[in-house]
Nucleic acid binder design. Structure first.
Length: 308
DNA sequence: TGCTTGAAGGCGCCAGCCGT
DNA sequence: ACGGCTGGCGCCTTCAAGCA
């Protein structure tokens, strides 16, 4: 622990080494492995829609039409979100999750679809993949953790998944989890408070180097917005955490291009929100009692290389 | 241009239910 | 008793409209 410097140092390292625009760790560019299931289901949906349209034009018997509504309803499954009808649900002020449980509303939406949209039978694979790509962000949940683990593995920190291994190894890293490294277990084994604001909120990683333990929360943000501000608040709250055990440190890790904005030397006065966040972070870091860290990728790498 | 507000939806996990 | 299914929740990120 001798070589480690104060938290403002790593904050400055982070400022001086911004995140790259493109970070391969967060690319999700593999082709959807279940694309065939998507195509099959979407094709069925479209064929049924065509049938329904014809039946209605010919004023067929109600019970016959009903059968096809039923069939369509069954296709509103896991592979329906890339279908035009699946997307149209969102245009009707609702979600597929809700409509899956509400057949009558589903029929209403289907009727509007037939009236307001073009019905054809084309299912281009490239379009389906495009909609999946559009949702790539939702698959990034674990990627931040993985990126940090990769950095740690390179620095000889082994990934462990039991307390025995965690205790035995001098240098290692463990992910918080509901079964082994849950909040209660961490509190008990490390004899710490771990007083996160939300009782059930789990942080991300436990990093051990001999007696020193870093408890890290990682976030990846490329843009701002309502939900992001809550995420930043969460990271700031971690800076406030205190332990009597002097070997425990909390680390708020933020990467992605929003991190650059927050760390930028000059923030225009108009961006009040950003200034406020930045001031809050700096206030905690300047507070002599605070031994917690705020870092981006470069800051974190420096911290790890200093930690011997 | 930036902030605020409100939203979608993928994924993982778990408890509880149900059929065998 | 057991194993699979399902609903609900937590977590994570991005998007968009309206307002100042």
């Amino acid at each position: 622990m001798k070589n480690i410097q104060d938290n403002l140092h790593y904050f400055r390292v982070s400022q001086e080494n911004p995140e790259p625009q493109l970070d391969l760790n967060y690319f999700v560019i593999g082709k959807e492995p279940k694309i065939k299931e998507y195509l099959k289901n979407i094709k069925e949906i479209k064929e049924t829609l065509i049938t329904l349209k014809k039946l209605k034009e010919n004023e067929e018997r109600k019970d016959v039409v009903e059968k096809y509504y039923q069939k369509l309803f069954q296709n509103l499954n896991d592979y329906s979100n890339c279908s035009e009808l699946g997307c149209f649900v969102n245009a009707c002020d609702t979600t597929r999750d809700l409509i899956k449980k509400d057949f009558e509303s589903f029929k209403t939406i289907t009727d509007f679809y037939l009236k307001k949209r073009i019905v054809d039978d084309k299912v281009p694979e490239s379009w389906v993949q495009a909609i999946i790509d559009n949702n790539a962000s939702r698959k990034k949940g674990k990627l931040g953790e993985n990126k940090i683990i990769k950095i740690l593995n390179k620095a000889d920190y082994r990934s462990v998944n039991s307390w025995n291994h965690f205790n035995d190894r001098k240098k290692c890293v463990a992910c918080f989890s509901k079964d082994i490294f849950d909040n209660d277990a961490v509190k008990e084994k490390l004899k710490i408070n771990l007083k996160t604001k939300n009782q059930d909120k789990m942080l991300d990683l436990l990093i051990k180097n001999k007696k020193t333990i870093l408890i890290l929360e990682a976030k990846h943000l490329n843009t701002d917005g309502g939900e992001q501000n809550k995420q930043i608040d969460e990271l700031i709250k971690i800076l406030e955490l205190k332990e009597s055990n002097q070997n425990i440190f909390y680390v708020s890790f933020l990467d992605g291009t929003y991190s650059n904005k927050l760390l930028a030397e000059s923030i225009t006065k108009r961006s009040r929100k950003l200034l406020k966040q930045r001031k809050q972070v700096e206030r905690y870091l300047k507070n002599k009692n605070s031994r917690n860290f705020w870092v981006n990728t470069a800051g974190f790498e420096k911290l790890i290389s200093d930690l011997r």
